[in-house]
């Protein structure tokens, strides 16, 4: 009905995984969200949900890049899509703070932050944007879990969407 390219009724022995990582730069967020939409379409996610997948993965990657940028981290942002009962997207950063900064407070001592401190508006909008990414994700994605940070890593945004024939549809 919705053009799945896989015969899901036939079952799949093991989940399919697409995994990549990217330098935390703004230029690559678009690539990540386009890959997300393409993998989701290939998995059979309903056409009407593909915009949501694209937006949500873009928001999660934007958040990760902002968090790395804020801490001066060059570590790669990790992205993983898996196709099993549902289409699952996980975006993991390496920033160990729950939030980049307290809301709107840009004067805190941030290692490596001085180079950008002259652009007050940009920093304020970046801080604002991290907040908004979570608001957008919360409003957009029904199955959303943000975990971490933990001792050896940052946070992971996990999201999932139903696949046809999975019997676990919570479509909305």
């Amino acid at each position: 009905m919705n053009g799945s390219k896989h015969d899901r009724a036939g079952g799949r022995a093991e989940p399919v995984t697409v995994r990549f990582a990217f330098t935390p730069a703004a230029a690559y967020v678009r690539a990540a969200r386009l890959v997300a939409a393409d993998v989701a379409a290939h998995a059979g996610v309903a056409t009407g949900l593909l915009d949501e997948v694209r937006q949500a993965v873009g928001e999660a990657c934007t958040r990760a890049v902002l968090r790395h940028r804020d801490r001066g981290l060059e570590d790669l942002v990790r992205v993983e899509f898996s196709i099993g009962d549902r289409f699952v997207a996980k975006i993991t950063d390496n920033a160990q703070d729950l939030r980049a900064r307290p809301n709107g407070r840009v004067g805190a001592a941030v290692p490596g932050g001085d180079a950008r401190a002259s652009d007050h508006d940009t920093i304020e909008e970046d801080t604002l944007s991290e907040e908004i990414t979570l608001i957008v994700l919360g409003g957009l994605v029904e199955d959303l879990v943000v975990t971490g940070p933990d001792a050896d890593g940052g946070t992971t945004v996990s999201m999932s969407w139903p696949l046809p024939g999975s019997g676990s549809s919570t479509d909305h």
Partner: peptide, 17 residues
């Protein structure tokens, strides 16, 4: 075609300025 939260941040900043 597409707008994410960064775009929303620009709108808020522009309104304030």
């Amino acid at each position: 075609e597409f707008c994410d939260s960064t775009g929303l941040g620009v709108l808020i900043g522009a309104r304030r300025r």
